[in-house]
């Protein structure tokens, strides 16, 4: 478990809906070291979301073992998974990430509140992290009053603020224009460096892939390419 944040062994996922079985992932083996900045790419339906959900403990693999931050995700119960997600994993989704009635700052504080941190600590950390993602002065706005890029920045702030080992981002730039997407990727790169957090994100946008240090290509639920890249994150 030493240097690997995520280890997958022979992971498969079959969705059964009525009589139809969909093989979403087949025999995935993967080791992701600490502080990696990894991109899952592949066409729509290739299994990117499924893989991220399995790693994040949002869903169970049909077969295989998944270890995240030293814990067997496939064997944890509901409570254990909630605890793991709360303390070890941050999520950024494609859209509608934020709780609409809470302000940017309250969205960020929400996870810290779940973690049981004191109000004083929550306030200070929220202010600090929102400043870091470039939202100074917008802390009091609700998601509806923020642009798509700003909303994703809040989501990144919220994912990082719980001090996780791993951040999972499922197509975080899908709803953003290319300039905004690039800025967001730069922010992720920055977070990866500054906070020593492993990042796994998915995309089918070539521009976004170029930020990764390791690029995994999925096709029909199988890994078809695993490419180490020097550029991008390490800079």
């Amino acid at each position: 478990m030493t240097e690997h944040t995520v280890i997958l062994r022979n992971v498969s996922k079959v969705y059964r809906q009525n009589a139809v079985a969909v093989q979403a992932l087949t025999d995935i083996n993967l080791e992701i070291p600490r502080k990696d900045f990894l991109c899952l790419s592949g066409p729509s339906g290739s299994g990117k979301s499924t893989l991220l959900n399995l790693i994040g403990g949002l869903d169970k693999p049909t077969t295989g073992e998944i270890t995240v931050a030293g814990e067997r995700v496939d064997q944890l119960g509901k409570g254990g998974l909630a605890r793991l997600r709360l303390h070890k994993i941050g999520f950024v989704f494609q859209a509608y990430n934020l709780i609409p009635v809470l302000t940017a700052r309250e969205n960020v504080e929400f996870v810290m509140q779940l973690q049981g941190r004191s109000p004083a600590e929550r306030g200070a950390k929220a202010r600090e992290i929102l400043q870091e993602v470039g939202l100074e002065g917008l802390e009091g706005r609700r998601p509806g009053e923020l642009s798509g890029g700003q909303q994703q920045r809040v989501a990144v702030a919220r994912a990082i603020v719980s001090e996780p080992s791993l951040v999972l981002a499922d197509e975080p730039t899908a709803n953003l224009d290319s300039k905004t997407a690039e800025n967001l990727m730069q922010l992720l790169v920055h977070m990866n460096k500054e906070h020593h957090v492993t990042f796994i994100f998915s995309t089918h946008d070539r521009l976004v892939m170029d930020f990764s240090r390791r690029l995994i290509k999925l096709h029909d639920g199988r890994i078809v390419d695993d490419e180490k890249r020097g550029a991008g994150a390490v800079g």
Partner: peptide
């Protein structure tokens, strides 16, 4: 669902 993903318990 998002809240559950963030680690909130049911």
């Amino acid at each position: 669902g998002v809240m559950l993903a963030l680690g909130a318990t049911p």
